[in-house]
Design a protein around this nucleic acid. Structure first.
Lengths: 356, 356
DNA sequence: CTGTTAGCGCATTCAG
DNA sequence: CTGAATGCGCTAACAG
């Protein structure tokens, strides 16, 4: 679709208070706009006397340089576009945190939007931000994004971009992800070492690379420990909410032989599962061990405190932003793409037994 | 401080791929740029034949209108500046959610930043966003902001703004807040009705209007029920984290006579408090009732499930944005300021006893 | 219907 | 050291 933003059409609007420009200053001081510009930009090509005078007037008249004009001229806005599936989650908001902290010192602002896990919304946002001429993109694709032409189009347009957290297989750009496989493997291997033999897995949306990798880690940990993989012990949640955790756990407990451990896609799911287990009158970790993923701040305060796989999300944001900044602030032509993987870490708490 | 963004200074930078402009199109088709512009904007002042031809070429050349040029011309960017204390909290990210949902249909984009509860950072962000010429501001001030000249300066500059969640007393703008007083009153009144007589309060940062109002609600609920207010039962947390909840609860349990209920500034604090109570071997709500504030999604899954005061945060964001849009999209000159108050609601769960 | 002109606010050549 | 001219990409008022 080729369309133009409605807002651009002419329309009567409340006129904003006119703001002082370098031309205003120039007229008052009876000098040329160039001179004003030079003074404001601390150019050496101006007498310090005039400079002082100009700066003073500028201050007194509340002069503010217009970034729009600057951006138009410089062909760079110093704005970065950030698109995440949802901003409400601790995970992504922490990543954004990292991005902002990395980027602030370089004078970049963030334009942030959430796709709400919707592909079409993601496309819309991407295009809108591209029209604003953001200098680059930091994107974590929606779970319903299976085709990457929209990304490719923007990239080919010359806008640098970094994909983070969720991989887009088959689309070549810089990417930063967490080693979900390793995290899952570690978690399940640990469960096995504590004596669990019938370990279930509540997986996430199948389309998510993170969900797939965690499932693979789970499967390989079982394999390497010579434990049979049972289809009935793997259930798939539609999303990663606590409600989904509830539904999936109910399903798992409905079978004749219940699991002695559950490794969930993330903490939210684990929390839902925990409630179901509790209500069934089963003991954690006595009857069933439970391990989550993400290590959200609340997880440590659950009763019992949740064993979980901590992810370096803040660093994820930082590194993604850093890579993007590299593209933006250096002249080096990039050869190939970076694919960075950050290591997660198992945090053992009370929902899992200990290894003797 | 009067300063210029470093990024504006001339610097060698990797030239971005030149993008097609209406002038390019004009040259190719040998017509004037105005004609191109008219075609692109679906003006009636053009032959449908030419229009079709132009649109086709534009599409094939991946033409995208440059919002910067447009914004410079229209004196409006269709970008709204959002400043919140922290983006990581469920509370503010949900408010942002509401803002975005309200604003999306009107074609506005969001520039979001967090002040990290720092006054100076807030000032910095505000100024940077103002330079970008955002059309308006949605701000929840940092807890360390006690003086509002920076807001006033921007407002006087002609940029509309709405303050939300946290009030700035003495500064007149449109504001949208939640009735913290009523929420707190309801919670504490309820605790009293369940038989609690020695109700403690863990308050938030004293500078926060929300913390003050919740404390006042607590106090008035006691008063109206003729319960004596005891200084020793009110402790102040430096911030609103779970760690603070832990620290404050330890303090409360150290006194000779422990409370039979605790009303906390928010859920995060309550969670910390809950852990301390549990570790002391006390029963909730048997020995101590516990009520939080915010009703975060996890609170329902705690063990026992947390009684809390739900806040209409999403609506808070929506309404704030709506008010700002009113300023932006209508010609009506505003007389006075709106002060909207949203009603919170007590959600009773397991950490409080029931009323017989 | 179409082209020309001017200007949004600024920086940067190029002449003086 | 300073000013005049030019252009960033686009629209709108004004002629034709």
């Amino acid at each position: 679709m080729f369309c133009y933003i409605i807002g651009c059409l002419p329309q009567i609007l409340k006129m904003r208070k006119p703001q002082t420009t370098i031309i205003d200053l120039a007229k008052i001081l009876k000098v040329s706009p160039s001179t004003i510009s030079r003074a404001l930009n601390d150019s050496p090509l101006i007498s310090s006397e005039k400079k002082k005078q100009i700066l003073e007037l500028a201050r007194s008249m509340n002069y503010l340089p217009n970034q729009l004009a600057l951006s138009l001229f410089n062909k760079r806005t110093k704005i970065l576009g950030v698109i995440v599936p949802e901003i409400t989650s601790y995970y992504f908001s922490t990543a954004i945190n990292g991005i902002q902290d990395m980027v602030a010192d370089y004078g970049y602002k963030l334009m942030i939007s959430q796709s709400n896990e919707s592909y079409s919304e993601e496309v819309r946002l991407l295009e809108a931000m591209n029209l604003v001429r953001v200098d680059g993109f930091l994107i974590s694709p929606s779970s319903n994004t299976t085709e990457f032409d929209h990304f490719k189009k923007v990239k080919d347009y010359g806008v640098p971009m970094v994909i983070f957290d969720r991989d887009c297989q088959g689309f070549d750009v810089d990417k930063v992800v967490v080693d979900d496989y390793a995290g899952a493997f570690q978690a399940v291997d640990y469960l096995i070492k504590t004596g669990c033999k019938r370990i279930a897995h509540i997986s996430g949306p199948e389309n998510l690379s993170t969900a797939r990798h965690r499932k693979e880690g789970y499967i390989d940990a079982l394999k390497i420990n010579k434990i049979k993989i049972l289809e009935e012990l793997i259930v798939f949640g539609e999303n990663s909410s606590s409600e989904t955790g509830v539904a999936c756990m109910i399903k798992l407990l409905a079978s004749k032989q219940i699991p002695d451990a559950v490794f969930t896609y993330n903490d939210a799911v684990a929390i839902g599962a925990m409630q179901v287990i509790r209500e069934k009158g089963l003991h954690i970790p006595g009857d069933i061990s439970l391990v989550g993923f993400d290590d959200e701040p609340y997880s440590a305060y659950f009763n019992p405190a949740l064993t979980s796989v901590w992810q370096p999300v803040y660093d994820l944001g930082m590194l993604s932003a850093k890579i993007l900044l590299n593209h933006l602030e250096s002249d080096k032509v990039t050869n190939g793409f970076r694919f960075e993987t950050l290591k997660p870490e198992l945090v053992v708490r009370e929902t899992s037994k200990s290894i003797f």
